[in-house]
Amino acid sequence: MKFFRKKRVFALLLFLFVVFLFYNTRLLGTWMYPIKYEKDIRVSATNYNVDPFLIAAIIRVETNFNPEKTSRKGAIGLMQLMPDTAQWIVEKADYADKTVHSLERPDVNIEVGAWYLNSLYQQFDSNRIAVLAAYNAGPGNARKWLSSGIWDGTLKNIDKIPFGETRHYIQRVMYYYNKYVKLYDEELGPRTT
């Protein structure tokens, strides 16, 4: 008899826990979709007028907030910046030369990545989807697809992008972007561009 009583108590507690999680979907959501380095993201987003949720979504897709990740192609840090791209950014943004050697640091990587996103927004007329295509496949490829009419720069027509990796990348970033906006809108700060 004690065994069945324990099972009922356990089942009731489990049921109450599940009800609590579904009742408090925000708690469950923030547990499933955490954002790390919020302060660095907020500061860099403000500095370069870039949407903080977009930075967070890119970091989630690129490294899942692991600052030590390096890609097979050599991309470094949270936002997976290629060394050549980082060097170009350092020259254009007039950062100190030592910046390139500090890309493993989350604050530096996010700052440089936010500057780069701002640059891409300027190059692609504030088209967020084209910016993501350029971030993943390179601005030259994105520009070529847009200017030749292969792709119109919309999320609706990303199936026209010739690179499957880029199509998938855009979909994943936008998935996390939408989750973050829904869960953290009041905490991370105002959205921009």
Rank of each mutant, 00 (worst) to 15 (best):
M82F: 09
G29D: 03
V43S: 06
Y135F: 13
N49P: 04
G77I: 13
L81P: 10
I35H: 02
K36N: 09
W115F: 13
A96T: 13
A57C: 10
A86C: 07
V50A: 08
E104R: 15
W31F: 15
R42Y: 06
L13E: 00
A134N: 05
A133W: 06
A86G: 09
Y176Q: 12
A142K: 03
L183W: 02
P67F: 04
A11Y: 00
G77Q: 06
Q122G: 06
L155Q: 08
Y169I: 03
P162H: 05
W151L: 11
K36S: 06
T193D: 12
R105A: 14
L120G: 03
T154Q: 03
N141F: 01
D40A: 15
A96C: 08
L132V: 06
F163W: 11
F20P: 04
I89N: 01
S126I: 08
E91T: 14
T46K: 14
K98S: 10
E68Q: 11
S147Y: 02
Y48C: 13
D84I: 13
I150D: 01
L155I: 15
I58N: 02
L81Q: 02
T192A: 10
F22G: 01
L21R: 08
L81A: 01
R42A: 14
V90N: 03
L13H: 02
Y176E: 06
F4H: 12
W145Q: 13
R26Q: 11
R128A: 09
